[in-house]
Design a protein around this nucleic acid. Structure first.
Lengths: 198, 198
DNA sequence: GCGGCTTGTTGGCACCCTGTCAACAAGGTC
DNA sequence: GACCTTGTTGACAGGGTGCCAACAAGCCGC
């Protein structure tokens, strides 16, 4: 107990908001939407429950902020792919993806999994934006960013979902190795780039 | 109103259970877990709310029964793939999958989407079993059912997730055509069978 | 036909969670 | 030290869930 529980302390709005958000990220990351009550978050932050509504609005709004944090971290360094022929660029993209997802595996996979909120329009929109960004990276790496169409983008998005589910078999189920995942993802992307992206 | 609302009628347990279940399937299929209350289901069935707990236990148990119904329907006719070379069998598998998913699109995609319950161990287990069954079909169609390993099965499972997300781009977003989805799925499965299943 | 019995069914109770809001007080200012 | 801004609290009302004793529909023996 490093915090005096009996005393009431004023923090600057940004600091308090950040403190609550970090607690929420931790809790939602390990327990899923329905299993985390705003009371839990408030207790974790040593704060009255009403303060959460004051800063974030509704519980779902808080969750949206949490998902944004979880998804924004990895997408920081999307750019920076090397030059070279198609196999080289595809390999670099897959390597980059596996690095990112293994580093932030828990939070990132938890966010993509939607922790029990998939189907909600707002949550799906936030996740969809992250998937869209990743899909842009896929089209970029395969050299189709210039000829981008809605259909191409949809296929790339679908491939990103494929990446996440394959990564889950590696990081969560532990039944695939990183080398195997790498080969699966690189091979399928090569096939898509060569035969269906046209 | 074909049902006398004011009268209390006794039904046989199986009939009542089935009646409640069908209402629950309809409601959960169109509105997601959190947005459907047991009161809604009870009202839809013209029944006291407590009766739902009597027949199904908790609300999550009811939802599990609903998901089982939604996922069991399509997996009925998994078998029956034609003989022939690899491209022929792959093509038939993809055609079969697209037929099934387009016929039961709403309920099946809703169930796979978990309607806001992904992350729950029990729900994930039920969905996982359906994915496993589909993955068996994939290994069967590609002729690797005999040499089945855990890793192969994981890759097939991952491919099934790829199929669902691609189908979503077609049936829910409407940005891909059936022909495009077919080509994507057939091409990638051919690539996986030829290069990574080894 | 009638009382009794099995059991499908109901309504209400207790508990938890959520969103709101008026009241409170911490910390700076004059 | 009085005062004022505003971060913070606690209580309230509404709604959802699980549970359980009481009720009654429909069948059986007489």
């Amino acid at each position: 107990m490093s915090v005096e529980a009996g005393q009431r302390r004023r923090l600057e709005p940004d600091a308090r908001r950040q403190q609550i958000l970090s607690v929420a990220v931790r809790l939602f990351g390990e327990r899923g939407y329905a299993d985390v009550s705003t009371t839990d978050v408030a207790r974790g932050a040593g704060v009255a429950r009403g303060l959460i509504n004051h800063y974030f609005g509704t519980k779902k709004d808080l969750y949206l902020a949490v998902v944004r944090v979880m998804l924004t971290v990895p997408s920081a360094a999307v750019a920076g792919l090397p030059e070279g022929d198609l196999p080289t660029r595809v390999d670099a993209l897959v390597t980059w993806f596996l690095d990112v997802v293994s580093r932030h595996s828990t939070s990132w996979l938890a966010a993509i999994n939607a922790g029990g909120m998939a189907g909600d329009p707002d949550v799906d929109r936030v996740i969809g934006e992250a998937i869209d960004a990743a899909a842009d990276g896929v089209l970029d790496a395969t050299g189709f960013a210039g000829r981008r169409t809605e259909a191409l983008h949809a296929m790339a998005r679908s491939y990103v979902w494929f990446c996440t589910s394959t990564a889950r078999e590696w990081l969560q189920r532990g039944v695939l190795t990183r080398v195997q995942v790498h080969k699966v993802l690189a091979t399928t992307l090569m096939a898509m780039a060569g035969e269906v992206f046209v």
